[in-house]
């Protein structure tokens, strides 16, 4: 037996091309990252000067780089690294920012005013400038990158969630819960949060796109993940030096980034349609 709600959801899903395509591309991505490295005979780190800069062909689908490493193996391995980093860099700020936005908006008063002042001021610092300065000050490493993104990106989530909370607070169900004498924590978690989190989830998809660009940019600038760990931005930077002799070294990691970007843009658009209530 299918409940009417589930049935309606299914109909909504079956009409949502963006979401379907996005999920399909995400599945393909996960498959490529987790299954490719096992299937491919090549080691992403194995240096072999005899087979340096071989163009894409039957043996090396994406060619090899200047050190003779298989580019496909490296792109797949880098995908695992980049997506791990991106997941942390998106999820941690999502949790921190949403919590701060929720509490700040719900409590209101002086706490809220001060916090929003802080957000306004932080908002003036361009994302890259702040992240690069923090990473620069701490020294380039994955852990410091997590810290830098967490310190910067929470602002966006806090703003989004707080705005929704302010709207939700005026709704009857929140006021009813208050009248019934539920604890504030319970009201926030059970009554407010489910109604305000949707825009933050949708933004999370857009943030994945921004973060993958940010993480690979740091790698490209030499401020992120350090060689020889394969990373898409680092690979593009390395390939840049012999772009005329081996365009494929830079091309394929870039295409991988574009693929991830398109996937999450579609997921974001699709989720926006899917989660937004009708009307």
């Amino acid at each position: 037996m299918i409940s009417p709600v589930a049935r309606e959801r299914w109909i909504k899903f079956s009409r949502n091309l963006n979401l379907q395509l996005g999920l399909f591309m995400l599945g393909l991505l996960v498959f490529a990252i987790f299954v490719f490295p096992v299937l491919i005979a090549h080691d992403p780190l194995a240096v072999d000067f005899d087979s340096a800069l071989i163009p894409p062909g039957a043996d090396h689908w994406f060619g090899t780089d200047d050190l003779g490493r298989d580019v496909l193996a490296r792109v797949a391995a880098a995908g695992l690294v980049d997506l791990q980093v991106v997941t942390v860099c998106v999820f941690v700020p999502f949790v921190i920012g949403s919590t701060i936005g929720l509490v700040s908006g719900y409590i209101g008063g002086v706490v809220d005013t001060l916090l929003m002042r802080l957000v306004d001021i932080l908002w003036a610092f361009p994302f890259y400038v702040l992240v690069i300065s923090i990473v620069g000050a701490l020294g380039p490493s994955v852990g410091n990158m997590y810290l830098a993104f967490s310190m910067v990106v929470w602002i966006s989530f806090a703003r989004i969630v707080r705005g929704e909370v302010l709207l939700a607070k005026r709704q009857e169900y929140v006021q009813a819960a208050q009248v019934l004498g539920f604890s504030h924590i319970r009201i926030m978690a059970r009554h407010v949060l489910p109604n305000v989190i949707t825009p933050a989830i949708v933004f999370m998809m857009a943030d994945v796109v921004l973060t993958i660009l940010g993480v690979t940019s740091l790698g490209f600038l030499g401020l992120g993940i350090q060689p020889p760990t394969p990373e898409w931005g680092v690979m593009i930077a390395e390939g840049r030096n012999f772009i005329l002799d081996g365009w494929w070294v830079s091309l394929f990691p870039g295409l991988a980034i574009v693929y991830v970007g398109i996937t999450f843009t579609l997921l974001g658009d699709g989720l926006d349609d899917f989660l937004r209530p009708k009307g």
Partner: peptide, 15 residues
């Protein structure tokens, strides 16, 4: 423009 938005600027620049 979905593609353009997903392209890392440094990569597009190199291309």
């Amino acid at each position: 423009f979905i593609v353009a938005m997903s392209m890392p600027s440094f990569w597009l620049g190199i291309l």
